[in-house]
Computed example of a mutant assay.
Amino acid sequence: MTDTTSYVPPAVWQPAPSGGAFASINRPVAGPTHDKELPIGKHPLQLYSLGTPNGQKVTIMLEELLALGHAGAEYDAWLIRIQEGEQFSSGFVDVNPNSKIPALLDRSGEQPVRVFESGAILLYLAEKFGAFLPKDPAARTETLNWLFWQMASAPYVGGGFGHFYAYAPEKFEYAINRFAMETKRQLDVLDRRLAGQRYLAGSDYTIADIAVYPWYGGLVQNRLYSAAEFLSAQDYRHVNRWAEDIAARPAVRRGQRVNRIRGDEASQVPERHDASDLD
Rank of each mutant, 00 (worst) to 15 (best):
T4C: 05
V12N: 05
W13H: 00
P28Q: 00
V29W: 09
G31K: 05
P32K: 06
D35H: 05
E37P: 12
L38M: 15
L38P: 09
P44R: 08
Q46L: 00
Q46G: 05
L50W: 06
Q56A: 09
K57G: 09
M61A: 03
L65Q: 02
L65A: 03
A67E: 13
Y75Q: 07
I82M: 10
G85P: 06
S90A: 15
V93A: 15
D94F: 04
N96L: 08
L104S: 11
L105T: 12
S108W: 14
R114K: 15
G119S: 14
F132H: 06
F132T: 01
A139H: 13
R140E: 03
W146Q: 04
F148Q: 07
M151L: 14
A152L: 13
V157C: 07
Y167V: 06
P169D: 13
F172W: 12
E173Q: 14
M181Y: 10
T183H: 02
V189N: 07
D191K: 01
R193H: 07
R193N: 14
A195P: 00
G196I: 06
G196E: 13
Y199N: 03
T206G: 03
V212M: 15
V212H: 08
G217S: 06
G218I: 09
Q221Y: 01
R223Y: 03
E244L: 15
A251I: 00
R254V: 05
R257W: 11
R260K: 10
H273E: 13
L278G: 07
